[in-house]
Design a protein around this nucleic acid. Structure first.
Lengths: 178, 178
DNA sequence: GACTAATTGACAGCATACTTACAATATGGA
DNA sequence: TCCATATTGTAAGTATGCTGTCAATTAGTC
């Protein structure tokens, strides 16, 4: 016998009466941390009224001027359908422009506007501050460890997500047609 | 001079041309991992047609029979407004019941139905499998480390989120009025 | 060169998240 | 007891995130 019968309920296992099945689950922790990360980001950047998703999209468009929506979604691993409305909002705020492609009539090329570039420069300190705050409670060494493990895990799990990150593929496609 | 001028661009820093500002940011990694975690959960549990949020809500209701929506939101750290529709969907699927409280006419008490309890029992293996898969790519020791750090970070950042986890508080309130 | 297959952006629909507002109800204090 | 305040559930509005579908267009193949 590897366990003492006295500390255990009878053999018929009744449902657990604690929330541990939820609180200790990786999925719950990831969801919770994502909630927290977004809250911190929005709070730090509220003066600029920009969401994390919109920020990532702007950075990607700045990095790849003239990219189209489909490739953009692959570069930041965001859902293509969702990205449509994100782009709409960024265009409505005049941070980006959508121009028809000369070669391909289906494609709309994305470019940062002057205003969008200025916003990115202005918001950078707030974004940095937000990223720092997210890990602040941990000891510096633990921050590095967590970041390394998360990077590793996200990379190794890339194909498991509905919208895998295709930074390289997308870039090649993009370069070929531009 | 602590840096070599040759390896640096001129003093006027022009915008970086890589996506590193996004890919290495903790916030991006948390978002990405959350996407992946949900995709894995949904895939493993697709036979039961239950989302991670609905699963957590069911477990909480089983753990605290007769809880009301506001306290439920505190126990699983989900937004109260969102929880309204989650509860609606669970009720529509007949997994839970909403009964008026005798003492407080504002409150609706939540209980698992027989069907809801059966579902929870049936789905447990799939949920476990999903949680395992999320961390699978890491070495066992790294899984433990990541889990410990995430638990720590989520706990220490609790107040930073819009809906802090209030498991104990909520329970005391709940016990007092039941 | 014509037909099929793939791609692109758009849309509809569902499910979280969060904000603000509101009506019904409770509660606490003057 | 009455009144200001707080709580509860709900709803409207915005923003992701995902599933489908669709028409227009392009690319690949025979």
């Amino acid at each position: 016998m590897t366990r003492t019968a006295v500390t255990k309920t009878p053999v018929t296992r009744d449902p657990p009466i604690t929330m541990d099945a939820v609180y200790t689950a990786p999925g719950y922790l990831f969801r919770r941390m994502q909630q927290i990360a977004v809250a911190i980001f929005v709070e730090e950047c509220k003066a600029h009224d920009l969401t994390p998703v919109q920020y990532a999209a702007l950075v990607a468009i700045r990095t790849h001027p003239g990219i189209d929506a489909t490739r953009l979604s692959a570069v930041i691993a965001f859902d293509r359908s969702t990205l449509g409305s994100v782009i709409e909002r960024l265009e409505a705020k005049a941070y980006i422009e959508r121009k028809p492609s000369a070669g391909d009539k289906r494609i709309k090329l994305l470019h940062l506007t002057r205003s969008g570039g200025a916003l990115l420069r202005d918001i950078m300190p707030s974004v940095e501050q937000a990223q720092v705050r997210m890990l602040q409670p941990l000891k510096p060494a633990d921050r590095k460890t967590l970041l390394a493990l998360m990077t590793q895990l996200v990379d190794l799990n890339n194909e498991a997500s509905r919208v895998p990150l295709r930074a390289e593929d997308a870039l090649e496609h993009f370069r070929k047609s531009s």
